[in-house]
Computed example of a mutant assay.
Amino acid sequence: MTEHDRRHPMRHAREDVETSVGVPSTPQSRSPSYRLAFADEDFLCREELRPVRLQLELLKTTLLMDEANIVSTVVLFGGARIPRPETRDTARTETLRGLADQYEEARRFARLVTEKSLAETGGTENVIVTGGGPGVMEAGNRGAAEAGGRSIGLNIVLPHEQAPNEYVTPELAFNFHYFAVRKMHFLVRAAAVCVFPGGFGTLDELFESLTLIQTGRMERVPFLLFGETFWRRIIDWEALRDAGTIGDDDLDLFRFVETAEDAMATMAEWHLPRTRREALHR
């Protein structure tokens, strides 16, 4: 029980949970109706309790992040199937074998971001957050761990999903039932969004994040796409503009980068006027 829990004079809920376990076993005490509502998993999983479960998923992660003093994050989205460089030969396609280099860039980028965070803020700002799984996600958490810093993993329960990767900071490993709440937690503290090659999940995260920025529902932050060749092959950005379904300015919401160093420089220059950014690269 924490000091905060002792600020009021009422009996603590945890004490009643412990007491209720030891009551004599009778037909009445064994009845589901007798269980404490907040300790009754069957009750909490009822259809009518969905709003409560949504609130709990939002609140638990928020409280634990606040208690861990996570002020801001750098988001890494990317595919679970991107192989480590040393296992590229086992990848099932030639493209995936080539994308193994993106694992290493994600790892190096996370390491650089975390080193800078530790030096400048003691590791409270620009904390790496990933989906907590394998591939690019593992690379991001791994790079942060190699720098001696913390990183966050936002996993979700899937039919064939694995445990969080071994590099996520244990007290910052979260698990979700609702995709919507999970995606909200990716972005509510985001100081930058970095997207590596991936599949449906990565594309979903990419476009939802861009839509929030485009529509003004989210502040504009550095938005980096790693691997220009991949992204131009997958998405015809200019075709969207030429069709009139997005505007010219929408193509300026993001930048292509190739290396961890490119990404760090682009983040540093992000809020400079366009003419100043261009002058730096002449």
Score class of each variant (00 low, 15 high):
1 M>W: 10
1 M>S: 13
1 M>G: 13
3 E>N: 12
8 H>E: 13
10 M>I: 12
11 R>L: 11
16 D>G: 11
22 G>R: 09
24 P>K: 03
28 Q>Y: 14
29 S>L: 05
30 R>L: 15
30 R>C: 14
35 R>Q: 15
39 A>W: 00
40 D>E: 07
41 E>V: 15
42 D>M: 13
45 C>A: 15
47 E>L: 13
50 R>Y: 14
53 R>Q: 10
62 T>C: 14
63 L>A: 15
67 E>K: 12
69 N>L: 13
71 V>K: 11
71 V>D: 12
77 F>V: 05
79 G>V: 04
80 A>N: 09
84 R>K: 13
85 P>V: 02
85 P>W: 03
85 P>G: 04
97 R>S: 13
106 A>T: 01
112 L>E: 08
114 T>R: 02
114 T>D: 06
115 E>C: 05
118 L>H: 03
120 E>W: 02
120 E>F: 02
129 V>A: 04
133 G>C: 04
144 A>Q: 10
150 R>Y: 05
155 N>K: 09
156 I>W: 06
157 V>L: 15
157 V>F: 14
157 V>N: 14
158 L>Q: 11
164 P>S: 05
166 E>L: 09
167 Y>W: 14
173 A>Y: 03
174 F>L: 10
178 Y>K: 00
179 F>M: 11
189 R>C: 04
191 A>K: 12
197 P>E: 02
202 T>Q: 00
203 L>K: 10
211 T>L: 08
212 L>P: 06
214 Q>Y: 06
218 M>D: 09
228 E>S: 14
228 E>F: 11
232 R>W: 05
237 W>P: 04
239 A>H: 11
243 A>M: 11
246 I>H: 06
249 D>T: 09
249 D>V: 08
252 D>V: 08
252 D>S: 15
252 D>I: 08
258 E>V: 05
264 M>A: 07
273 P>F: 03
277 R>V: 06
